[in-house]
Computed example of a mutant assay.
Amino acid sequence: MTVQGKPWIAPTLIAAVAATITAIMGATITEIGPWYHGLKQPDWAPPEFAFGIIWTVIFSLTAMAGIAAWRAAPDDRAAESIIGLFALNGFLNILWSLLFFRLHRPDWAQFEVIALWLSILALIVVSWRYSRVAGLLLLPYLIWVSIAAALNHQVVILNGPFG
Rank of each mutant, 00 (worst) to 15 (best):
L85R: 09
F162V: 05
L118A: 15
I24M: 09
P47W: 06
W96A: 08
A115H: 01
A65N: 08
R102L: 15
L61P: 06
V133S: 12
I67A: 09
I32Q: 11
P74R: 12
W55G: 11
I29Y: 07
I67K: 01
L61W: 09
A134R: 03
G66W: 05
G66P: 01
W117C: 01
I9L: 08
F59R: 03
A115C: 02
I24K: 08
D75M: 09
T20K: 00
F91M: 12
I54A: 15
P106S: 11
I120N: 02
S146Q: 08
L123M: 14
I157C: 04
L121Y: 02
Q154P: 01
M25P: 00
N152A: 09
W108K: 04
A16T: 06
T62M: 12
A78D: 12
M25V: 04
I67M: 10
W108I: 14
A68K: 07
A115Y: 11
G52W: 12
K40H: 09
G163F: 10
G84T: 02
L158E: 09
F59H: 12
I82D: 08
R102A: 13
W70T: 14
I53D: 04
L88G: 01
F111T: 01
A72R: 13
I82F: 04
A63N: 05
R129M: 11
W44R: 09
I24T: 00
N152L: 09
I147M: 11
L116Y: 06
S146I: 04
L123I: 08
N93T: 14
F111H: 14
R71D: 03
V155Q: 06
L139V: 15
A27G: 15
P7A: 13
P7C: 09
W128K: 06
L158T: 14
G135Y: 10
A68F: 12
R102V: 10
W128F: 04
I83E: 03
L158M: 15
A23T: 03
M25H: 00
T56P: 03
F86P: 01
W55M: 13
G135E: 05
L92S: 00
G160H: 13
T20V: 02
G33S: 15
I94P: 04
M25C: 03
P34G: 15
L138S: 08
A65P: 09
T2Q: 12
I24N: 06
L61H: 04
P46I: 05
W96Q: 05
G135K: 13
G38E: 02
A79K: 14
S60T: 15
V156W: 12
D107G: 11
W128N: 03
G26M: 01
T62F: 06
I21E: 01
Q154D: 15
L118T: 12
W35E: 11
T28M: 12
A109Y: 13
G66N: 14
T22A: 09
G163D: 06
S60M: 04
I82H: 04
A65C: 03
M25T: 07
S127A: 10
A73L: 08
A134T: 00
F111Y: 14
A19L: 01
T62D: 05
R102F: 13
A78R: 08
I124F: 00
T62E: 07
P106V: 15
S97I: 12
I9P: 02
L123W: 08
R129C: 08
Y141C: 04
I157D: 15
I157P: 03
